[in-house]
Design a protein around this nucleic acid. Structure first.
Lengths: 143, 143
DNA sequence: CTTGACCTTATAGTAGCTACAGGGTTTGCA
DNA sequence: TGCAAACCCTGTAGCTACTATAAGGTCAAG
């Protein structure tokens, strides 16, 4: 199949497929006489593997590693696979925590201007300006 | 003060300060005879304003807008300020939701290999491979 | 024989920095 | 006076994971 069909079947844009090839995540396929890429079933599965990992938020470098385990002797221990997943879980987890703190801070800031005002009276702008001048601010200091 | 001192006082690297100047977030300061940037107190406050907003995860484009409100007549309504903060809150909120789903999916995947195995037996790799071949997977399908 | 849908490569853009390279300046010390 | 360390300058390239062009070649239908 051509790149467009692979794209349609996987829901991944042609340009992204070419990008994955350049990045060494997908093997370069055979070419037709006119230079068009010709994909087979294994390419589709490899791409699906990549997309599945991406949907789990894994970085391309980790996916490269994960894919690489297929080339290794099957009797090897799989602890590095587990470590990659654990790493990803902890990355995601700490992002969640950081964003939750952020949301609270933003809501505290937002509460400073709950009814419509003018720029001069806006509690949000005042808070931000005050913080810039070194004062305590609703969003960061009154935890 | 020179850029290095501004950097030290704000905890922002000199290169980032120059970057903000290039991006039009900080006004270009006066220069010494040898071309060194000379900052005054207002620059420090402006930079602190930017850093404070950044610490709330606001994109530079929004910070530019927020800073721009200082140049506007003080009697203008501040609803666009509020809208920017609301937007940021909803961005952060939907990121949190997406990451929480991700974490659950990752943990379901991780549970497929809770004790050490070989690559051949690794429930994680098997799940990922199966998903690539079109099977249902622990992480996405058994919600 | 032309139109439209496909494909090719190469390059630049996105966000928000960070990290050089390759220079100039200033300060202090011997 | 000479020199080294610690500053500063500009300009450019790198990071992630794409996305979006430009400028062109190919192929099938009508």
């Amino acid at each position: 199949m051509q790149i467009g069909e692979l794209a349609k079947r996987t829901g991944c844009e042609s340009e992204t497929i070419r990008y994955y090839e350049r990045e060494g995540l997908l093997p370069a396929p055979a070419r037709s006489s006119s230079g068009y890429r010709r994909y087979e079933q294994p390419h589709l599965e490899q791409l699906a593997f990549i997309l599945h990992c991406r949907s789990l938020g894994m970085p391309l470098a980790d996916i490269r590693l994960l894919a690489g385990f297929h080339q290794q002797p099957a009797a090897e221990p799989c602890d590095r696979v587990n470590a990659l997943i654990d790493q990803q879980i902890s990355r995601v987890h700490s992002q969640i925590e950081a964003l939750q703190k952020l949301e609270i801070q933003l809501q505290q800031l937002r509460a400073r201007c709950d009814s419509p005002h003018t720029l001069a009276d806006c509690g949000i702008l005042k808070t931000l300006d005050g913080a810039a001048a070194g004062e305590a601010c609703a969003c960061h200091d009154e935890s």
